[in-house]
Amino acid sequence: MNDALSHPAAPPYVDRDQHSVANHLGMWTFLATEILFFGGLFTGYTVLRWAHPHAFAEGSRHLEFWIGTANTAVLLTSSLFVALADLAIKRDDRRAARRHLVAAGLLGAAFLGLKGFEYFQKFQEHLVPGSGFDAHGAQPALQLFFFLYFLMTGLHALHMLFGLGAIGWLLRQIGRGAVSRERPDAVAIVGLYWHFVDCVWIFLYPLLYLIGG
C-alpha cells in the first residue's frame, strides 16, 4: 500500500477524476439500496393502510400536526445548509463550509429533539405498541399504525444519527485540511446521504401526519 508514489491517485485509480466519479456512482448505488430498504416499509404501509383506512386515519389524528410540519421545515433548511457547504468547499471557503455544516448539524439535532418529544408524548398517551397499548376504543389495527409509525420514524431517526456522525467527521476532515477545494468529494457524498434522508422524511410527513382526513 506504500507505493502510491507511482500512482498519483489512491490505489486502484488512475486519476482523481476517475476516483471522484467512482465515489459518486458508489454513493448513488448505495442510495438505491436505501430506497428499497425504506421501500419495503412503504410497501407494507401501503398494504395495511389499504386494508385499514379508518384505523390509519384515526392514528394520524393522534399525531401532532405541528411537530410534523415544523420538523419538515427544519430538515429542508438543514438540507439547504448542506448544499451551501458543498458550494463553499468548492469555492475554497473552508470556514463557510464548516459554518454551514454546523448549522445543518444543529438543525438535525433539533429535529431529533422534536421527534423525541413526540415519542415521549405517545408514551404518555399509551400509544406505544405492546402490552401497555391503549387503543382508545378504536379497532386493533390502530396498533399497527403506531407500530409502523415508530418503526418508520425510528429507522429514519437512526439514519439521522448516522448523518450527524458523518457531519461531525466532515467538520474534522475540513479542519485538518483533508477535505478541501482539491479534494471536495466528501462533502458532496455526505451531502447526498443527508439530502436522501431528508427525502425519506418528505414522504413520511404526508403518510403519517396528513392522512387524518
Binding site: 448513488w28 448505488t29 438505491a32 430506497i35 421501500g39 410497501t43
Partner: peptide
Amino acid sequence: FALAGFLWL
C-alpha cells in the same frame, strides 16, 4: 442509478 431504486420500488 438514481432512477433504478424508484423503478424497483
